[in-house]
Design a protein around this nucleic acid. Structure first.
Length: 833
DNA sequence: AGCACGCCGACT
DNA sequence: GTCGGCGTGCTC
C-alpha cells in the first residue's frame, strides 16, 4: 500500500471526539451504499464527492465515492474503516451527485452502475493480488505437480507477479486453485496492492546551462566543441536557434526530430553539463493553435440565433428544427462562441462520435485550443486528462457521446444536443440504461445552463414538448443558400410489376434515372436497409427457415464470406445444402440485402462504377473513410448502402436517391417504427440535390397510399406527428414514457405462457391500464430459455419508479405463493424511453 | 466485481 | 470415488 498518499493528522479542529460514518458508493451493481467508519484523524477532511479506498469483501480494496457523511453507527454490524482518501478536493460536487441520484432513481439503476459509467476507468483504482515466493520455501523436498512447478519457476524469475500476470505467463487456466494450493504448502505468500492506473505523460525538456549564457563563454564553448565534437556543436547551434536568445526550455524529442540530430549528441551535451534537462508533465490532448477563423452568419441564421436567445429567457430548452442543409451548425457555433466569451463550459453532444471529423475540424478553426473530445476510443489516460481539464473549470467546448453528461463540469453554460432524435442517445445494454438527451437536459437544469436541441427530424417527444410550449421552438424551413428540396416520387411496385416494368429489385423509372444521372456526370445513392446478400433462407417444401440457435432470429446469408450470420448476436455457420427439417433440396433465397442489390445493379448497368456502404464493406480501419473519399472524388457513380448512409455524410454531387423497398421499414415490429421510417426516409432522400440544383428521390413501395410515405413526400412533419401521436395514444404508448420491463424466463414455453398471462392479469388489477402485454418480444429466445415480457408504463406525473417496482414485487410474491411455479424466473429492466 | 458455498456431470 | 462446471448469495 506504499503508493497511497497518507494524510496528515487532523487534530485541533474540535471534531476529535466525535465518530463519523460515511455512505460509500462502490463501482458495482449493488442496490445500496455501504457504511464505513471515518478514522478520527480525517474527521474534518472527509467530504462528500471525494474518492476513497475501502476494503470490501474478504481481502480486496476498491475505489468508492463518498455519498454522505453522518454520525449514526450501523446497528447490526461493525463498520470497517476507510483505508485512505484519494482526492483532497472532492472530484464531484453536490451537482454531480444530484445527477447520479436522479439517474439511479429515474432509470431504476444502482448508484454503483452510475459510478461505473461516470468515472473513467483510470480513476477507479482497485487492489490486485500480488504473489511472491516465500523466502524460506523449500521447493526441492516438496512434491509438486508440473503446473505448480511452472508457477514457481515463473515467480523465481520475476520475483513478484499479480495473479493476472501469472496467468498470462504460465498460460494455465486454473491458476487460482493452484496458487491457493501453493499458499497452503507455504511456498508462496500473497498481498494486496493498489496500482496507480493513470500515468502522466512525461517529456524531457532541455535548456542551456546558465554558466554558458554569456556571449564570451558561449563563444569559447563553440570553439572547444568545433574541433573534437562537430555533432555536438551542431546540436547546440540548433538548440540556440529554436530556443531564442533568452535560452528557453525546448522539447528534447522535438528538437531531435525537427533538426535531424541524434539523441547521442544531445545526451553528450547534457552529460557535460552544457545543457540542463528536466522531465516535465505534459498532457496527451491535441493542442491546436488558434487559427482564429471568423464566424460569419447569414442574416437568417442571425435571426434564428436571436430567436433562440430570447426564448431562453423563458425556457431552459429550445428545439431548433431545420431540415437537412438548412445551416443549423453555424447557429450552434454562434451560441457556443457567446457561452465561451462568458467564460463558461459547453457540452456538445452527438449520437455517435465516429463521423464527426468535419465538425471537429470546424470547431478547432473557430475555437482553437478550447475544443476537447471524448471517445470510447480514447485511451484511459487521455480520458482522465479530459476529465481533469473539465474539473479544473476551464472554459471550453467538449464534444462527446452520451456518457459525456457525466463529466465533472463546474461552469456549464450551454448544452448543444445535435441530432436529438437519434436512438443512440439511449444506452440500452449495461445499466444504467439511460436516455443521454434527457439526462443532459436534467444536467442543464441542475447547472442552470441553456439547452439547445437540434434535428432535421425531431423525435416525437421533443416535437410534442416544443409544440405544447414546454420547450421553445425555432424552425428553419428553408435550405441554406436558397438550395432546393428534392422532389420525392413514390413508385408503386405492384403496379409496375403488373406492367412488366421491373427488372429484379429495380423499376424502369429508377433504373433509367440512375443511368441518366451518371451520364450527366452526377451521382446516385441506392438505399436498402438490409445487410448481406439475402436476409432469409427458407425450404420450399416444408417452410423451415435458417434461424440462430440462441436468438430465434432468421440468419442472413453473406455471399462474400459464404456463410450465414445472426445480425443480433454474431453467431455464424456454413449454409445448409439441404433442409435439416425435411431433407428437401429446394432451399430458397428470399429478399435482398445490399450485397445482392449491388450485384443486380452491376449486371444491369455494367458501365457504371458501383460501391457498397455498409458495416461489411466499411469494416477495416480506414475502409470507411476510403469509400467516402472515393465517392466524394467521383471515382464511383453509385453508392449502395444501408442506413449508415443517413448519418452525417454530406455528398455534394448526389442528384438522385433511390429507395429499393420502403415496405421493409414500415413492417419493422417495433412501436417506434413509423417514426424511425419517417426519419430515415427524410434523412436519406434529403441527401439528394444541392445548391441551385433540385434533386430527385424515388421511393419504391407496394404501399403508395401509406400515410407515413405520403408525409415524407410532402415534407409534412406536423401532419405526420399528429397522426402518429393519435395512434400511440390509442395503443397506450405515449411518446415520452419509460417502461419497466418484466421479463419471464423459462425452459418450458407452455408453463411460461401460462405464468406470464396469469401474472399480467393480476398485475392489471392493481396497476390498471399501465400494464401492457404479455408481449411477443422481438427476441423470444435466449440460449435454452424462452422469454416473455410484460411492460409497465411509467408516467411523468404518476408514482415513482421505485413505488411501481415495489407494488410489482408485492404482486409477484403473492403470485408465487399461489401458483407454485418454481422454474419460471423473473428479471427487471427499464426501457429509458 | 470477487469469492465462498453448494449441487450435479465426466474423469484420473 | 473426486474435480470442476456455474447457479446463488454476500460483501459495510
Amino acid at each position: 500500500m506504499a503508493m497511497l498518499e497518507l494524510w496528515e493528522d487532523d487534530t485541533g479542529s474540535g471534531l476529535e471526539d466525535r465518530t463519523f460514518f460515511a455512505e460509500i458508493i462502490l463501482p458495482f451493481s449493488l442496490p445500496k451504499t455501504f457504511t464505513y467508519r471515518v478514522p478520527v484523524k480525517w474527521n474534518s477532511l472527509l467530504e462528500k464527492g471525494q474518492r476513497v479506498i475501502v476494503p470490501f469483501g474478504k481481502k480486496k480494496f476498491y475505489t468508492g465515492l463518498v455519498y454522505e457523511v453522518h454520525e449514526s453507527p450501523p446497528p447490526d454490524y461493525e463498520a470497517k474503516y476507510i483505508h485512505s482518501i484519494l482526492d483532497e478536493i472532492p472530484l464531484l460536487d453536490k451537482n454531480h451527485l444530484k445527477l447520479w441520484t436522479w439517474v439511479a432513481a429515474y432509470y431504476m439503476a444502482n448508484l454503483g452502475d452510475v459510478m461505473t459509467a461516470a468515472l473513467p476507468a483510470a480513476l477507479k483504482l482497485a487492489s490486485e493480488t500480488q504473489v511472491m515466493l516465500h523466502p524460506e520455501a523449500a521447493t526441492d523436498n516438496q512434491e509438486l505437480s508440473g503446473q505448480e512447478k511452472k508457477i514457481i519457476a515463473a515467480l523465481a524469475g520475476a520475483g513478484q507477479l499479480s495473479i493476472r500476470e501469472v496467468q498470462e505467463i504460465s498460460g494455465l487456466k486454473n491458476v487460482f486453485s493452484l496458487i491457493k494450493a501453493l499458499y497452503y504448502k507455504q511456498l508462496i505468500y500473497t498481498s494486496e496492492e493498489i496500482a496507480q492506473r493513470y500515468k502522466p505523460l512525461m517529456k524531457a525538456f532541455v535548456k542551456l546551462h546558465p554558466d554558458f549564457q554569456e556571449p564570451e563563454q558561449l563563444n569559447d564553448l563553440f570553439k572547444s566543441l568545433e574541433k573534437k565534437a562537430v555533432k555536438q556543436s551542431d546540436a547546440l547551434l540548433k538548440y540556440i536557434s529554436s530556443a531564442g536568445n533568452t535560452y528557453e526550455w525546448v522539447d528534447k524529442l522535438l528538437l531531435q526530430k525537427e533538426n535531424n540530430i541524434s539523441a547521442a549528441a544531445i545526451n553528450a551535451l547534457i552529460n557535460k553539463n552544457i545543457l540542463v534537462s528536466e522531465e516535465r508533465r505534459t498532457d496527451r490532448l491535441d493542442q491546436y493553435a488558434n487559427d482564429a477563423e471568423e464566424l460569419k452568419l447569414h442574416p437568417f441564421q442571425q435571426e434564428a440565433a436571436g430567436k433562440i436567445r430570447s426564448l431562453w429567457k423563458e425556457k431552459e430548452v429550445v428545439l431548433l428544427y431545420g431540415i437537412t442543409g438548412s445551416g443549423k451548425s453555424f447557429i450552434y457555433f454562434e451560441l457556443i462562441k457567446e457561452a465561451l466569451e462568458k467564460g463558461g463550459q459547453v457540452l456538445y453532444l452527438l449520437p455517435e462520435i465516429a463521423l464527426t471529423v468535419q465538425l471537429v475540424g470546424k470547431l478547432r478553426k473557430l475555437f482553437g485550443k478550447k475544443v476537447y473530445i471524448t471517445h470510447s476510443r480514447f485511451s484511459d489516460n487521455e480520458r482522465v486528462e479530459v476529465y481533469q481539464k473539465i474539473a479544473s473549470g476551464e472554459s471550453c467546448v467538449v464534444i462527446g457521446a452520451r456518457s459525456a453528461v457525466f463529466l465533472p463540469f463546474r461552469q456549464l453554460e450551454l448544452i448543444v444536443i445535435d441530432e436529438e432524435h437519434d436512438a443512440s442517445f439511449k444506452q440500452q445494454d449495461p445499466s444504467p440504461r439511460y436516455q443521454g438527451r434527457d439526462t443532459a437536459i436534467l444536467l442543464g437544469n441542475i447547472f442552470r445552463a441553456k439547452i439547445l436541441l437540434g434535428s432535421a427530424t425531431p423525435s416525437i417527444e421533443s416535437y410534442y414538448n416544443a409544440k405544447s410550449g414546454k420547450y421553445g421552438l425555432v424552425e428553419l424551413p428553408e435550405r441554406f443558400d436558397g438550395a432546393l428540396l428534392p422532389e420525392i416520387t413514390l413508385l408503386d411496385l405492384g403496379d409496375l410489376g403488373k406492367k412488366k416494368r421491373m427488372t429484379g429489385s429495380f423499376s424502369s423509372p429508377l433504373l433509367e434515372e440512375i443511368e441518366k444521372t451518371a451520364k450527366n456526370g452526377k451521382q446516385s445513392i441506392v438505399f436498402q436497409n438490409r445487410k448481406g446478400y439475402v436476409p432469409i433462407i427458407t425450404c420450399k417444401s416444408c417452410g423451415w427457415s435458417a434461424k440462430c440457435v440462441s436468438c430465434d432470429i432468421t440468419l442472413t446469408y453473406y455471399k462474400a464470406q459464404d456463410h450465414l450470420r445472426c445480425n443480433y448476436c454474431g453467431y455464424s455457420q456454413k449454409p445448409e445444402k439441404s433442409c435439416p427439417a425435411c431433407g428437401s433440396h429446394h432451399l430458397e433465397m428470399n429478399g435482398f440485402g445490399t450485397e445482392r442489390i449491388e450485384e443486380e445493379l452491376e449486371l444491369m448497368l455494367p458501365s457504371l462504377r458501383i460501391g457498397r456502404f455498409d458495416q461489411q464493406s466499411t469494416r477495416g480501419k480506414n475502409a470507411h473513410l476510403r469509400l467516402v473519399q472515393d465517392f466524394e472524388d467521383h471515382r464511383l457513380d453509385v453508392l449502395v448502402g444501408t442506413q449508415m448512409l443517413s448519418k452525417g455524410l454530406d455528398f455534394k454531387n448526389v442528384q438522385l436517391v433511390g429507395v429499393i423497398n420502403a415496405d421493409q421499414l414500415l413492417n419493422f415490429p417495433d412501436f417506434r417504427s413509423y417514426e424511425r421510417t419517417f426519419q430515415l426516409l427524410t434523412q436519406v432522400t434529403g441527401r439528394s440535390g444541392r445548391r441551385k440544383e433540385k434533386g430527385t428521390a424515388f421511393i419504391q413501395t407496394y404501399k403508395p397510399l401509406h400515410p407515413v410515405l405520403q408525409h415524407v413526400v410532402n415534407y409534412n412533419y406536423s401532419k405526420f406527428y399528429e397522426e402518429e401521436l393519435g395512434d400511440r395514444e390509442r395503443y397506450h404508448y405515449p411518446p415520452y414514457s419509460r417502461l419497466i420491463e418484466i421479463t419471464f424466463r423459462c425452459k418450458e414455453p407452455e408453463q411460461l405462457e401460462e405464468h406470464a398471462l396469469l401474472f399480467a392479469r393480476s398485475l392489471k388489477q392493481s396497476l390498471g391500464e399501465r400494464v401492457l402485454g404479455p408481449q411477443t418480444p422481438y427476441i423470444s429466445r435466449l440460449k435454452n430459455y424462452y422469454l416473455r415480457r410484460i411492460l409497465v408504463k411509467l408516467e411523468k406525473n404518476g408514482p415513482s419508479p421505485a413505488k411501481v417496482k415495489q407494488s410489482i414485487l408485492v404482486n409477484l410474491e403473492t403470485f408465487h405463493k399461489d401458483s407454485r411455479t418454481k422454474n419460471v424466473f423473473v428479471s427487471f429492466d427499464v426501457d429509458p424511453g
